[in-house]
Design a protein around this nucleic acid. Structure first.
Lengths: 207, 207
DNA sequence: CAATACCAAGCAAGCGCTTGGTTTGTAAAC
DNA sequence: GTTTACAAACCAAGCGCTTGCTTGGTATTG
């Protein structure tokens, strides 16, 4: 399944809003603004202006501003869990699976859903405690994917550190790329960056 | 020189405010609040209450709220650059120097200056563009420390990835520990965590 | 002819910051 | 050793503005 096919099926299941619909367009703009200025600095007037409506009209679609932030996060996690699963199924060995996961996460962070991923990382504290708990539950699902693969590599003796520590280090390292990695201005492609991450972990590039 | 001696000499040079003085106490509380609630969610009334003065009185010490954030960052970078330099000078081989840097950064992030370090990472966007440029200049000084050491390891053939990529990955990975690493509740000590990071990079624990 | 989507207007609360005046610490002058 | 001088530190009050959100009404759509 291609990335677009996955997206389509999630839309069909109503797990992700259609980006052409009113709700989907708003969430996309919200992700952009939240990333650019941060949640707190983004006003409901900013959000409304971005989709061309009055600020009060927002509250027809969402009850509170926080609900918008939460929706961005929930949909992003849903989409990415599906993408990770698909990426992993296409690979055979644990090493290849790890590479697939790293590449998929880098793609999520630096690709089309990048804005939403950055929001997920940097605006976490702006969620209420209740919402944090809800979102955390969803995150655990795809963290398990990583731990399985890293555990297998550890059993093979090809990973010297603890899987759960490595996963957390990778979470930080890969998320952080959003602050510096700029594929458009020359140098490192996404595959090149993936190779660098693998090399850092002691897995030389295959090509 | 011990960590405390370094701090004392920086205070003497007026590069860091005395934490017993009014300004130093405010900056310490500011770091705590900024980390806990984020810069935007922290009001000048919160800051004032934390040190037991009226909100208006803050502006006798700082011209704007942003100046407080900037001061936290500038002083933190200054202190940490000194700590890193000291840690590195005590080590001989590139590998030992890398370990010293990793350990020192983990200590900064998770120790006494941890709150300020977290602010440095997560509240970056809340600085004005001008202030960002000022702070960035200071950061470059200690980034150079890392690149030197990583470059030496690369030359030795003990590092497969590019130094500048590894440094950026480590920045993310080590910063991220602030969100999950809790030394107090059992398990991993700071040295243990340092070992894990080194192991992840392909350097088995020495002990 | 509902239901959905929106607008225009504005409210109450909270924000960063200013103001004019008072207290406190310090050190020289008597 | 009390008095005088003065700046630094602080308070009490509140200004002007922005914030998230509400309200009552009007288009639009199936």
């Amino acid at each position: 399944m291609s990335q677009n096919q996955i997206l389509q099926s999630l839309i069909a299941e109503n797990l992700v809003s259609d980006p052409n619909g009113a709700r989907g367009r708003l969430l996309k703009e919200a992700a952009r603004l939240f990333r650019e200025k941060g949640y707190e600095r983004t006003t409901v007037r900013d959000l409304a202006a971005a989709v061309g409506i009055q600020s009060g009209s927002l509250f027809h679609h969402f009850r509170t501003k926080e609900e918008i932030l939460k929706a961005v996060m929930v949909e992003t996690i849903g989409l990415n869990t599906a993408l990770m699963q698909a990426a992993m199924e296409a690979a055979d060995t644990p090493k290849d699976k790890l590479r697939a996961l790293v590449r998929a996460e880098l793609e999520s962070i630096n690709g089309q859903t990048g804005e939403a991923m950055a929001v997920l990382v940097f605006e976490w504290r702006s969620l209420s405690a209740d919402s944090q708990a809800d979102v955390l539950e969803l995150r655990d699902i795809y963290e398990a994917l990583w731990l399985d693969v890293l555990g297998a590599l550890r059993d093979q003796g090809r990973l010297l550190a603890e899987p759960f520590v490595v996963r957390r280090m990778l979470t930080g390292a890969l998320s952080w790329t959003v602050t510096w990695y700029r594929p458009e201005r020359g140098g490192l492609t996404l595959d090149g960056l993936t190779d660098q991450v693998m090399a850092m972990l002691g897995f030389p590039a295959t090509s």
